[in-house]
Design a protein around this nucleic acid. Structure first.
Length: 840
RNA sequence: GCGAGCGUGGCGGAAUGGUAGACGCACUGGACUUAAAAUCCAGAGUCCGAUAAGGACGUGGGGGUUCAAGUCCCCCCGCUCGUACCA
C-alpha cells in the first residue's frame, strides 16, 4: 500500500474531531500548558507564514500533551480592520460578509493542516459578543482617566477628505488620489500607556522566556531618558521657553534654539510673520511617519526671536523653527550644541551658526563622548556625569530648570475614522459634553447598511446611526463615530480564550489557572507594538479590577519570514513560481515559453508573486509534508526559504518512513525488549536513547530543525539495522515505536496511521513522551583532538576522566603529532575529556 | 535617520571558546530497468597532491583578546524587521 496522505489525513482529522482529542479539560487540578500562536487576520486564505506559525505552535501543543499537561491551544480571528473596508469598496461586498466567508474558508484550511486546536474556544473579534467587553473596558479606563481625548496629527488626504493610515501614504501622497498628504490636527481617543511606562520598562528584566532582542527593542521604544528642562527667557518679552535636554552639561556650547513647527510659540510667531507661517505650512507637507520625518532634509526657519543664555551674561540665542523637532518628545524645543551633537552640527553648518566646543577632545567635531569640560564657567574641569549633576543643581538654585525624566513612548492613539472596528461608547451632548454610554446600553453595534462611496468617515456619513439622545439629559446628542484601533482587540484575546462565558470578559478561576500564556509564538514584526500594548492592557485591566495579572506571556518565540525566489519577465513583470518550468538550469514561462529571469530570494509577497499557495502543497503532498518541511531546514526564529526541492526531500523521507514501518513483519510487541541484548542491538538502543534525550532538548530550546535532523538520523540507524532473529525484530519494533512518538508532533496524521498499523488501538496523541534510559547513554570513552599550536593533528580515543599525564603520554605516541612537534613544547594545555594543545 | 537582528560549502543549515560543515537539498558515479522516473548504494568545502597518505586555505571584510575564535571585543560592508493609523 502506498503512502496516500489525502486519505489518511482526512481519516485522522475526522477521528480527532469525533473524539474531541484536543479539548482543553476544565480540571484546574492538573498541570496546565497554554500555547498560543498569534491569531490571523482573515484575509481570505492562509499563506505560508500562517503555515509556519501554526506548525510551530502545533508541535509545542502536541509535545506538551504527550508530556502530560492539560493543554490549551485555541484559535480565533483578528477580524476587524482596514482590508475588509478596502474589499468592500473594490468588490461591493459588505465587510462582515467578506470577513465571515474568509473565516469559513481559512478554518477549513487550518483543519486540513491537522492542527490540534480546541475549536470549541474559537472567537472572532468583530463579533459583538467579543467586542462588547472592550466597550466596557474602555468605559472603565475612561472613568479613571486611562482613556482620554486629545489633539493629534493625522495624515489627511485633501482630495478624498479622509484620514490615511501610514501604509496608505506612499512617497508623501495618498495611495488612491495621489494627492499630496497634509498633516492635520484632529481630536482622538488615547490610552495612557505612559502612566505604566516605568513598570513596563522595569518588568522587562523579569521576562526570562523572551528573546533578548525583543526586550531590547521594547526598552528602546519606551526610551526612558534622564535629563533636564531649562527655562530660557525670551528677549523683549516676559515669556519663557522651556527646552528638554539629556546633556545639560553642554549648555555653554549652545548656539541656537530650535522648536517644533507645532510648538505653541511657533504658532504665535506665525501670526505676525508670514514667512514663518509659510515655513510651518511647508513642514506640514510630509507624512506623520517617523522615518519620513527623520529622513527628510533638515530645514530651519530663523525667526526674529531670541532667548538669553541662562549662564552667559548678555549672550542671545536665535530661535529657529525646525522640521526635525518633534512636538511629542520632551517639550518640543531644544537648545542646539553643534560641537557635541551630530544633528545640531549639521544644522549649524547648513545655517552658518557658531560651533563652540566645551568638552576637551583631540577627535573631530562633533564629539559625542565623555570628557573634561572647558569654556564652561562653573563646569570647567568636570567630566560629563559630574557636570550634568552640577548643572542641574545650579538650574534648581536659580529656579530656571530641574532634573527631568522623559520617555520616548507616546500614549496610544486608539481612534480610527473607519467603519470596520469596534464603536467607541461615548456620546457628545451640547449640554453635558462627553457622556459615556451607560453599561446597560452596551454593546453599541455597527449599522448594517453602510455606504463606502462617500468620502470621509462612513459612520459619520451614516444618515441615522450617530444620532441619539443624551443618557444624562435626554436631549439630542451625537455618538462618537470613531472606532478602535484593531490592536485593542488583540491586546486581550489571549485572556478571553481561557473562558468564553457570555456574561463577563474573564472569570477569575480560569484566568488564575490558564494565564499567563506559557508559550506565545508569532512574527517578529510584532516585537514592540502588539506585545507592548498587550503588556500594558493587562496592567490597565488590573487597575480597574477586571483581571489579576501582570505579564501575559511567560515565554515568547518570534518566527522568521517565509521567503521564495522571485521571477520576472524581461518586461519586468513578476511571475508566480507555479507558472515556471525549469530546463537545463534556466527558467521559462509555462505558457509563453519566454525565458524568465530568476531574481533574489525575498519574503513571500503577493505584489512580487513569489508565493506558493499552501492549499496546492496540501493537495499535492499532504499537510504532513508541508509541516515537516516547515520544521526541517531553518530554525524557527530565522527566515526560511520555501523550495520545491526541500518539499520533495520531506516527501521522500515520509515515504521512506511509511515503507519501512509497513514492511515490518510482526505486530504488537512494541514494549518488549529481549532479555539479553546483543551488542548490535545495544548500539541501536544507545542511539535511540541519545536521540530521545537530544530531541527533547532541541524541542525545549525551540531548535526544531535539529530535532528533525536527529529523528532522521535515528531513522537512518534503525532502518538499516540488520534483522536476523526475533530479538533484533523486537528491538527494531521498540525503537520504531518510540520514533513514531517523537515524530508525532511534527507529522501527526502519518504517525497515527503508522502507529495504528503497528497494532496499536489507542491514538498516538494519547501516548506519553518517551523517557530516556540513562543506563544506555553512559559513555566510557571519549574522543579528544590533539592540537599542535592550535591545529588538530590527531584524534585519540581515551577512557572518560583519564588523568592529564596519561592523556599526554598517549597523545605523544601519535605519529602525526610528533611530525609537527619538532621542538619541545613551551606549554602543554590539557583539558580532560576535551582537548590537548602543544604550544611550541 | 533611529532602534533591533542576521551574514558559515553550489544551497538550507549544524557546532557548552576546544575535531567547522551534523542532518538534508542539489550534484557526480554505481546498482536495478529495454529505457526513463522512482528506489537503493557510494562520493563530495576549495586548492595542492596521484583518485592515496598528508598538507595549505576557509565561517561577509579589516583589526584585536586567547594556548585555542564561526562563537568574545572594536571598526566597516550588505541584507531584513520595526519606526507609533497595515495586521
Amino acid at each position: 500500500m502506498k503512502y496516500n496522505p489525502s486519505v489518511i489525513e482526512k481519516k485522522w482529522q475526522k477521528k480527532w474531531s469525533e473524539l474531541n482529542s484536543f479539548k482543553a479539560t476544565i480540571d484546574y487540578t492538573k498541570p496546565k500548558y497554554y500555547v498560543l500562536e498569534m491569531f490571523p487576520y482573515p484575509s481570505g486564505a492562509i499563506h505560508m507564514g500562517h503555515v509556519r506559525n501554526y506548525t510551530l505552535g502545533d508541535l509545542v501543543a502536541r509535545y506538551k500533551k504527550a508530556q502530560g499537561f492539560n493543554v490549551l491551544h485555541p484559535m480565533g480571528w483578528d477580524s476587524f480592520g482596514l482590508p475588509a473596508e478596502n474589499a468592500a469598496i473594490e468588490n461591493k461586498t459588505h465587510p462582515s460578509k467578506w470577513t465571515n466567508s474568509n473565516i469559513q474558508n481559512m478554518k477549513i484550511q487550518l483543519k486540513q493542516m491537522g492542527l490540534s486546536y480546541d475549536w470549541e474556544r474559537e472567537l472572532s473579534t468583530c463579533d459583538p459578543d467579543y467586542y462588547k467587553f472592550e466597550q466596557k473596558m474602555f468605559l472603565d479606563f475612561y472613568k479613571i482617566g486611562i482613556a482620554y481625548k486629545k489633539e493629534t496629527l493625522v495624515n489627511w488626504d485633501p482630495v478624498e477628505n479622509t484620514v490615511l493610515a501610514n501604509e496608505q501614504v506612499i512617497d508623501g501622497r495618498g495611495w488612491r488620489s495621489g494627492a499630496e498628504v497634509e498633516k492635520k490636527k484632529m481630536k482622538g481617543w488615547f490610552l495612557k500607556i505612559s502612566y505604566f511606562a516605568d513598570e513596563l520598562l522595569e518588568e522587562i528584566e523579569n521576562l526570562n522566556g523572551w528573546p533578548e532582542k525583543v526586550k531590547t527593542m521594547q526598552r528602546n521604544w519606551i526610551g526612558k531618558s534622564y535629563g533636564a528642562t531649562i527655562k530660557f527667557s525670551l528677549d523683549n518679552s516676559s515669556e519663557k521657553l522651556t527646552v528638554f535636554t539629556t546633556r545639560p552639561d553642554t549648555i555653554f556650547g549652545a548656539t541656537f534654539i530650535a522648536i517644533s513647527p507645532q510648538h505653541p510659540l511657533a504658532k504665535k510667531i506665525s501670526n505676525k510673520d508670514f514667512k514663518a507661517a509659510d515655513f510651518i505650512k511647508f513642514c506640514e507637507k510630509n507624512s506623520t511617519k517617523e522615518a519620513d520625518i527623520e529622513k527628510a532634509e533638515k530645514y530651519g526657519y530663523e525667526t526674529n526671536l531670541s532667548v538669553y543664555h541662562p549662564f552667559k551674561n548678555g549672550v542671545k540665542l536665535k530661535i529657529f523653527i525646525a522640521n526635525f523637532i518633534l512636538m511629542d518628545y520632551g517639550t518640543g524645543a531644544i537648545f542646539g550644541c553643534p560641537a557635541h551633537d551630530q544633528r545640531d552640527y549639521d544644522f549649524a553648518v547648513k545655517y552658518s551658526l557658531d560651533i563652540i566646543p566645551v568638552i576637551n577632545t583631540k577627535e573631530n567635531l562633533p564629539f559625542i563622548g565623555d570628557g573634561i569640560h572647558s569654556n564652561s564657567q562653573f563646569l570647567n574641569g568636570l567630566n560629563t556625569d559630574d557636570a550634568i549633576k552640577l548643572c542641574i543643581k545650579k538650574l534648581n538654585e536659580l529656579e530656571i530648570g530641574e532634573e527631568k525624566i522623559t520617555y520616548r513612548i507616546r500614549d496610544w492613539g486608539v481612534s480610527r475614522q473607519r467603519y470596520w472596528g469596534c464603536p467607541i461608547p461615548i456620546i457628545f451632548c451640547n449640554n453635558c459634553g462627553e457622556v459615556p454610554v451607560p453599561e446597560e446600553h452596551l454593546p453599541i453595534t455597527l449599522p448594517e447598511d453602510i455606504d463606502f462611496n462617500i468620502s470621509g468617515n462612513p459612520l459619520d456619513n451614516h444618515p441615522t446611526w450617530k444620532h441619539t439622545n443624551c443618557p444624562k439629559c435626554n436631549k439630542k446628542a451625537i455618538r462618537e463615530t470613531d472606532t478602535f484601533d484593531t490592536f485593542f482587540e488583540s491586546s486581550w484575546y489571549f485572556a478571553r480564550f481561557t473562558d468564553l462565558n457570555p456574561s463577563s470578559a474573564f472569570t477569575e478561576e480560569a484566568i488564575k489557572y490558564w494565564m499567563p500564556v506559557d508559550q506565545y509564538i508569532g512574527g517578529v514584526e510584532h516585537a514592540v507594538m502588539h506585545l507592548l500594548y498587550s503588556r500594558f492592557f493587562m496592567r490597565a485591566l488590573k487597575h480597574v479590577n477586571s483581571i489579576n495579572l501582570d505579564e501575559p506571556f511567560t515565554s515568547l518565540q518570534t518566527q522568521g519570514m517565509v521567503c521564495h525566489q522571485t521571477f520576472k519577465t524581461k518586461k519586468e513583470q513578476w511571475i508566480f513560481p507555479s507558472d515556471i518550468i525549469k530546463k537545463d538550469n534556466e527558467y521559462f514561462h509555462f505558457e509563453s515559453k519566454e525565458p524568465v529571469i530568476a531574481g533574489r530570494i525575498e519574503k513571500m509577497s503577493k505584489s512580487k508573486k513569489n508565493v506558493v499557495d499552501p492549499q496546492q502543497i496540501i493537495e499535492n503532498y499532504g499537510a504532513d509534508t508541508a509541516r515537516f518541511f516547515m520544521l526541517s531546514d531553518s530554525p524557527p526564529n530565522r527566515d526560511m526559504e520555501w523550495s520545491d526541492s526541500g518539499v520533495e526531500g520531506s516527501w521522500r523521507f515520509l515515504n521512506k518512513l511509511w515503507k519501512f514501518v509497513k514492511s515490518l513483519p510482526i505486530r504488537n510487541t512494541r514494549d518488549e525488549l529481549p532479555t539479553n541484548v546483543s551488542k548490535q542491538n545495544k548500539e541501536l538502543l544507545i542511539f535511540m536513547n541519545t536521540t530521545i534525550q537530544d530531541v527533547t532538548k532541541a524541542i525545549d530550546e525551540f531548535h526544531f530543525n535539529i530535532a528533525v535532523a536527529q529523528i532522521r538520523s535515528l531513522f537512518n540507524f534503525v532502518s538499516s539495522h540488520k534483522i536476523e532473529n526475533n530479538d533484533d525484530l523486537k528491538v527494531v519494533f521498540f525503537v520504531t515505536s518510540k520514533l513514531l512518538i517523537l515524530i508525532n508532533p511534527m507529522v501527526p496524521h502519518l504517525a497515527e496511521e503508522l502507529w495504528n498499523s503497528l497494532g496499536n488501538k489507542n491514538s498516538i496523541s494519547n501516548e506519553c513522551w518517551p523517557k530516556v534510559d540513562l543506563s544506555y547513554i553512559k559513555k566510557n570513552n571519549v574522543k579528544i583532538p590533539i592540537q599542535v599550536n592550535g591545529k588538530v593533528r590527531a584524534v585519540i580515543e581515551v577512557p572518560l576522566g583519564l588523568e592529564k599525564s596519561d592523556i599526554e603520554e598517549i597523545a605523544l605516541k601519535e605519529k602525526n603529532v610528533l611530525k609537527f612537534l619538532n621542538k619541545s613544547p613551551k606549554k602543554v594545555i590539557i583539558i580532560p575529556n576535551r582537548v590537548v594543545n602543544f604550544v611550541i
